[in-house]
Write a protein that binds this DNA or RNA. Sequence first.
DNA 1: CCGCCGAGTTGACGTAGGTCATGGGCCGCT
DNA 2: AGCGGCCCATGACCTACGTCAACTCGGCGG
Lengths: 244, 244
Amino acid sequence: MSTQQAELPQRLREACAVCSLKELCLPRGLDGPDLMRLDTLVERRGPLHEGDHLFRVGDGFQALYAVRAGSCKTYTVDSEGREHVLGFHLPGELLGLDAIYPGRHLCNAQALDTAVVCVLPYEQVSDLAGQIGGLRSQLMRLMSKDIADTAALAGDFTAEERLAAFLNGLSERFRQRGYSPVEFQLAMSRRDIANYLRLATETVSRVFARFENDGLIAVNRRSVRLLDLPRLRRLCAAMTGMRG
Amino acid sequence: MSTQQAELPQRLREACAVCSLKELCLPRGLDGPDLMRLDTLVERRGPLHEGDHLFRVGDGFQALYAVRAGSCKTYTVDSEGREHVLGFHLPGELLGLDAIYPGRHLCNAQALDTAVVCVLPYEQVSDLAGQIGGLRSQLMRLMSKDIADTAALAGDFTAEERLAAFLNGLSERFRQRGYSPVEFQLAMSRRDIANYLRLATETVSRVFARFENDGLIAVNRRSVRLLDLPRLRRLCAAMTGMRG
DNA sequence: CCGCCGAGTTGACGTAGGTCATGGGCCGCT
DNA sequence: AGCGGCCCATGACCTACGTCAACTCGGCGG
């Protein structure tokens, strides 16, 4: 009992303050006791190493995962062997929502670097969502956001619009998490970016080069500096306008 | 009181048996009393006429909508004036899930023909979802499915794969609703199909023609007959394989 | 019945981005 | 230090699809 009481704050810090439970709970103001109840569900898993899989296509769906540290990509491989990257997940973001419907994972989730995740057993989270309105509504909001984001990516846009939106989105996400929105390291390869944006890696390279020539960004391998955010925003206005 | 009691079965039939509440409730076996409680929430709206809007970008999010008769499309117009069709909605399908997150509608919803919808006030549905586990889980499943479907559309596929997947998906949806899976009317124009699949209308025309020449389908304006389902399925295996 | 109009089709041509091929640079391994 | 492998970049060329333009067809109003 006393060990449990001692453990709670630790897990609370990890799960709620660092990973997406913060995002899950705080916006609708869950209070201390509710956070505690949520906290008791959370397990940590990791560290995963670069290339390790968190789950694979076909795995039974048991839990949602929240990235605590490092980053992951989710992807599928189609019957022609082409890889489609569905998303990149930074600390504080949730994985696995698309597996709820069929009850098994439709994509693979792989660590892009050393990563730690929180495991959220779905049945229990769902039960708790029944009891706590704020949690329920926040889960719905997250899923809703996923739909809108994916729809934006599905749109018909040029390579430049896509890459600009990608950089802009990353910048925004880093900013929200307290990191620099103008200078960051890419966790993913050109190949991953290309498969995410539905471009060839060569095209990604070329557009990066073009952006650099135009003074929009400075890029060296995986480190990126955004030099002209306003212009970058204008470049992808068409895409981001779709969702906001 | 007696009028209420008399009305319930009527609305129950309309909302639960015909439109997507059936889909919402039945798979997890909601029972009579639960259905009744859900039923009291439901309002009918319509008939909408071709071209009428159910909601528009920026409208406050109040309710989800379930198509009861006819069909709708959801779409956005980006800053360059290009229209992006996000989806087509047949009787029994739910609209508006992407509006939960931002609390206002991100897309327009328009009737493709004479349509009737059921209005599901979101706050009340959400409360009820807190009380009824089956409803909650079914809502989550529907959102989850939306994510996976949109992701499939976002993938990098050829015009042929896209159109084949489109026809195949329609066929499947008609079959599920008890209509012929091989012969049906398209409610939407070539232009809508093109904007949905991210192709030019001319390309849609040409691929239709190619499919017809290859003996895959017979098509005349908006009436379609699928002549070789197995081959059609093989054509879009890459795409549908992604989600299942 | 005719003339109009928008939806759909078809052909000729243009282009964004894919493909293929080459080379440089960084890293880990021996 | 030297080597092999992968990631990235860049140039030359190719193609799936878009664009533009002409034409057909069916529906509707007068």
